[in-house]
Amino acid sequence: MTRRSSNAVPMLVVALAAIALYFPAMIWLNASQAQKLLSRGAELKCGDALACAFNLRSPIIPAPNQLLEDIPRLYWPLTDSTTVPYNAFFTGLETLLGLLLGALIGLGLAVLLTSSKAFERAVLPWLVASQTVPIIAIAPMLAVLLGANGVQGLLPKVLISAYIAFFPIAIGVAKGFRSPDPLQLDLMRTYNASPQQTFSSLRFPASVPFLFTAFKIAMAAALIGAIVAESSTITDAGLGRMLSENSRASDARGLWLVMIGSAVLGIVLVSLVGVVERLVTPWQRER
């Protein structure tokens, strides 16, 4: 526990450094943008470039006064379909369901990959190939295919999310199943343990730390899958929909806030995996 709280100080230092960098970067980037606009003779109604840095309609980086104005507008009320939290809820739900489905597929594949060399040789290259197809190219096709068969709502996005989540889980967990020490495997052999007993008493528990590492990677990937799926399909809710709408409207301030919301959602989801990990792996606590 002491080890964990001591992480807070270095993290805080980095956060403060990021904020310290934000101000000069914001002023420098926005002021040069304003300078460019002023030199073209644009009417900015804000005096010189430095003053305009805080009031651009489309800032490179939003100024603090703009953020303070936008946060209440885009984050409240929670139940309004135009706010970030409302849409983040749906994106988060799709991500979690996608991860769950991806975990089921990934665990099944990991069992097959480690129990049969022939299966590994035949299937692993195709699994790798499946991940080299850009998700942005698959998402609309899947959405159209599923839509044509009457599948709508969350499901297409959950499927796309699961499509990229299963892979790190399958690979990570397969590695975990193979992680026991040769001596530990010999030990099970001296007990004349059945393959099922060796799996449940040794291979599976040994894979748990690998499982959670894979879940963290898969969670981040599933979130990307969900957002890409939302922005490339016709959908009524989600951060991906907000991103594409704000992008079409060239609303830089809105895009920034959706982006910040996505980042927070990602951090929350990945930390959720960390919390579950600490609950189910007591032997790693306080280490």
Binding site: D181, L183, Q184, D186, L187, T190, S201, L202, P205, A206, V208, T281, W283
Partner: peptide, 11 residues
């Protein structure tokens, strides 16, 4: 059988 290393299960 007692091995060179304890080979205890860490979980």
């Amino acid at each position: 059988y007692v091995f060179q290393a304890p080979a205890l299960f860490e979980w």
